[in-house]
Design a protein around this nucleic acid. Structure first.
Lengths: 346, 346
DNA sequence: AAAGATAATGCAAACCTTTGCATTATCCTT
DNA sequence: AAGGATAATGCAAAGGTTTGCATTATCTTT
């Protein structure tokens, strides 16, 4: 008995042919007798031959692996994007390697070194909230590894980008709040160096200005994290202020939920006393009471398109000179019970 | 200029030594002059030498990759487990490859073929709900790939297993409902071939029997999926019945949430008219109103332990003859607002 | 200084597959 | 039947690294 896997050489020996012949038979090379091909294939089948992936990788200098870097995976937002990516990539010859930066620049840099080491063929990345410098992404590009940025933009970095029009989403949400009669609209925002939260803030500001409502700094707070617990303290402080807001536009659903929680705890009625609008439209958001008004994003599509673009870069030979693509998805306001109704006039 | 990456041979040529010497220098082989080592290392550093991962893989016949198969990733449950796995593996020499079976046996089988093809060193898997036959996992084992099963058991399969005592969790939950005064307790269960939901059902049944409460078949329904929407119809039917239950024990939080939703829609008060208890303790569950009583599971620990056990198998040489480990975590009942209070007598 | 011991390095195979080029076998044509 | 054309297959390198064994260089000892 031979040890280990069946190799092309095993088949060659048994058939008294050269390994190259076996290789050609399995790859359907034209200059080969039909009988030879059939004999080789039959034996390969019989022995359960499986090509050695590592040998192939070494030969082609190609790992057939695509790296995906996300800040975290426990929120629905990123897990849904990843599902979209998976669904596209799993139908290709590539495998994906998911890495978590935990919103840390340092971890992100380490991940990139790791991906460089295993020689991934492409990288999809949504940068950590801490990340301000993008040279590590440029390092990938210098090594001829295409980089696709999704959701969170990297200003100044030349790369394919799949983004969401956070500005428009925020503007729309705040405009709606204003039209529904709110005047004292607060914003629970996120880190300022993150494109998404920065644009949401800008949308908020411009919607106010557009309606000639003066901006009040005490209505704007910047939440440290992105999960429920992170929103509790800022909301509490906001609602303890002497100038009580009549609406809160939160940077995401989790924060909006914790705002709802605190507001109710303080005896406020939603939406009668205060309207609350989130961002993301997580699946459970519609099950809260009242159900959460929010801004929907096409998460699954973001994932799929990012993956498709990466595959496109990998499959076309002239990929390098192709201009970078930048796609911006439109989010959509979903009005539910946590904000006052407002019927758009015909 | 040389093309492509710097190799060990490039360094060797420039220093007029053999590639083997360079290799030994970089690996700190004892039989090498200090000066040689230093010279090699200096040049390697200067040229930015990076060992070729594929060549190493080929040589060692080892991909340094661990496959992880989960049914889905959008629920908090699996994404938290994966985070636990990641946190352990990322500190090792291994990389992980996450694959989604979408609860499909067929996709699971395809994934395993793929993992076999890329020659992963180990596989962590939580089988799809459809999966009844485990031969594909045995195929992995036959190829000397350790398999670690987590959360969902595979009866009859010999492997390392990290499970949760779903039976105890369910029993505890239902026992509590009984003690809090509920008598007509319904169960929204899952697929019967899944160990987790089967054990939860059994815990429910035994808790009733233990309290001498007769089991009523019309109180037991089997939900097709695991997400909010899947629970709507079964709950509606349950609550339309002439024998209205005074409690619902749902197989997970999402289903419990949709049960809460429907119950309230039908005008029932929670927990006055009906108590509702879930399973999983997802982060947002405590933010619902009323907050959801549920059974907490140590998701992160499940992930970490699974990963540790896999690494253990890979690192010990005598791994094969080591007995399989089976660890069963204890879940914990978390009583919140969706069920009637009950103070345990001292 | 020569022999023997030891330290330092080189050679080549191994891991597995593909592929350009060389070679051999087969066939056709005159 | 011989020459040339063509069909079929083999050889060997390449991809990058490690490692057992062989070899060379250096040192020690008498």
């Amino acid at each position: 008995m031979k040890k280990g896997r069946v190799t092309i050489t095993d088949i060659a020996k048994e058939l008294n042919v050269a390994p190259s012949t076996v290789s050609r038979a399995l790859n359907d090379h034209p200059a080969l007798k039909k009988e030879t091909k059939q004999a080789v294939r039959a034996l390969a089948e019989k022995l359960g031959y499986q090509p050695n992936f590592m040998a192939l990788s070494l030969l082609r200098q190609k790992s057939n692996t695509i790296g995906v870097i996300v800040p975290e995976i426990t929120s629905h937002f990123f897990s849904a994007i990843i599902t979209g990516i998976q669904d596209i990539i799993s139908n290709s010859e590539y495998n994906i390697m998911i890495c978590l930066s935990n919103e840390s620049y340092e971890e992100e840099a380490i991940i990139i070194k790791k991906l460089l080491k295993i020689q991934v063929d492409a990288v999809l990345v949504s940068p950590a909230s801490e990340t301000k410098n993008f040279d590590h992404f440029r390092t990938l590009q210098k090594n001829n590894i295409p980089v696709v940025i999704f959701d969170r933009d990297c200003p100044g970095l030349e790369a394919d980008k799949i983004l969401v029009d956070d500005y428009a989403g925020a503007f729309q949400a705040v405009e709606y709040l204003i039209k529904s009669g709110c005047e004292k609209i607060a914003h629970l925002g996120g880190p300022l160096n993150l494109s998404t939260t920065k644009h949401r803030l800008q949308g908020y500001l411009d919607a106010l200005e557009n309606a000639k409502i003066p901006v009040r700094q005490e209505y704007i707070s910047h939440v440290k994290g992105f999960s429920h617990n992170d929103g509790l303290k800022p909301t509490t402080e906001l609602l303890k202020s002497s100038h009580l807001p009549d609406a809160i536009f939160a940077m995401n659903d989790s924060i909006a939920i914790s705002a709802m929680h605190i507001a109710r705890k303080m005896g406020m009625r939603i939406p009668e006393d205060i309207s609350i609008v989130g961002f993301d439209d997580e699946p459970h958001s519609s099950y809260f009471r009242p159900s959460l008004s929010t801004v929907w994003q096409p998460v699954y599509s973001i994932g799929m398109l990012s993956a498709r673009i990466a595959l496109g870069r990998l499959n076309s030979d002239n990929a390098d000179n192709l201009a970078f693509r930048q796609e911006v998805f439109k989010p959509e306001l979903v009005v539910r019970g946590s904000s006052r109704p407002f019927i758009v006039p015909a």
